[in-house]
């Protein structure tokens, strides 16, 4: 990972007319990583990938692939790059193997002598050896997807760019692709996977970047990204005023009460109880109730000076009655929804 970046973009932008499809994206994909490229549909992922591969010209900015400037050194770089761009595309009237032959022979950089063996091997890797002689016309979507991945694996590659590789695959296929990606990464190939499937990225990737509306909103190692979200503490106390003072004294900024927002989580168990046990006495509920105070413990990376246990200790010391205390970390999903806004189709 110290060996530099497999993909590096600087200020990469693409305008279609007035609209910026990709807006000043600075990607940094370290060597040897499995890099998840996340974003909602239409966030500019595929356009970015097209620019990475020299299919589309950047309106501004630079692309470095495997340490070489693109698209100037396209012919040096692309033979080392396998790609699946926006779904597979093949000649329907040719067999799977013939398609791979044709695409392989399209490049002047491949060795014709080993072509047959390499095609065979690639087909085996994606489990298509039995359908090799079938016309692509008769392939299912998943088989085409596999064939597309096989095409990316025709030659030994240093970098794989896979755009939505598990699209249309059955669960087994998805798992196979995941294993394939892992084994490739194991061999040292950098894999750049674009996806809108959070779970997929979560399971496969070591690093990730998130695109939203053409902008890169986050990137880094997955673990870091998970942490990057704000950690909040949620305090339920009847002594709101004293608690605020304590928190403020700890430098935790203003501690705004958010009773409404807190309500669902804090009061949920009781809410469920209410319909079941209508006879529960009012006072009992009132006793648990208190003002809810939410405070952000720290955002981003380093400035996490205050630890939760210190907060509790201080509160107790100040005689604040703590009825509830929780440290909440955003889930990856929350994080992405927060980054990309609503409409991120995680469920898909």
């Amino acid at each position: 990972m110290t060996a530099g970046l497999a993909i590096e973009t600087r200020g990469l932008s693409k305008h279609f007319g007035q609209q910026a499809a990709v807006d000043h994206v600075d990607l940094a994909v370290p060597h040897g990583t499995v890099f998840g490229f996340l974003g909602p549909n239409g966030s500019g992922k595929t356009t970015t990938i097209r620019m990475l591969l020299g299919l589309a010209a950047a309106s501004a900015g630079t692309v470095n692939l495997l340490g070489r400037e693109m698209p100037d050194k396209l012919h040096e770089v692309l033979p080392r790059v396998g790609a699946l761009v926006e779904g597979p595309a093949f000649y329907p009237f040719l067999s799977g193997a013939a398609n791979l032959h044709r695409l392989d022979s399209a490049s002047p950089h491949t060795v014709p002598a080993t072509r047959k063996a390499r095609v065979q091997q690639a087909l085996e890797r994606v489990g298509l050896e039995h359908a090799a002689g079938k016309r692509v016309h008769a392939y299912s979507l998943g088989m085409k997807q596999r064939l597309g991945i096989a095409n990316a694996l025709l030659s030994p590659r240093d970098l794989l760019v896979l755009d939505e590789p598990t699209n249309g695959l059955d669960p087994q296929g998805t798992r196979e692709v995941r294993n394939l990606v892992r084994s490739l990464a194991h061999q040292g190939t950098t894999v750049f996977v674009s996806s809108h499937l959070l779970a997929e990225v979560d399971q496969m990737c070591t690093h990730a970047a998130v695109m939203s509306a053409g902008k890169l909103v986050a990137q880094g190692p997955l673990a870091e990204l998970r942490q990057a979200g704000s950690t909040r503490l949620r305090l339920v106390t009847p002594d709101a005023g004293a608690a605020r003072q304590v928190l403020a004294g700890l430098g935790l900024a203003p501690a705004p009460g958010e009773p409404d927002a807190a309500q669902p989580q804090a009061a949920q168990p009781e809410r469920i109880d209410v319909p079941g046990r209508p006879a529960v006495p009012e006072p009992q509920r009132a006793r648990l109730d208190g003002e809810t105070i939410v405070a952000t413990l720290g955002t981003g990376s380093g400035q996490r000076a205050v630890l939760p246990e210190d907060v509790v200790a201080q509160l107790v010391q100040a005689g604040v009655r703590v009825r509830g205390f929780a440290v909440e970390r955003e889930s990856l999903e929350d994080r992405f929804v927060a980054l990309t806004g609503e409409g991120f189709d995680v469920a898909q």
């Binding site: 591969l53 020299g54 012919h75 692309l78 033979p79 761009v85 926006e86 595309a89 000649y91 002047p108």
Partner: peptide
């Protein structure tokens, strides 16, 4: 139209 153009160019066919 088939989409194979992008694969030919990525191959790279030049």
């Amino acid at each position: 139209n088939l989409g194979t153009l992008r694969y030919l160019l990525v191959a790279p066919a030049g």
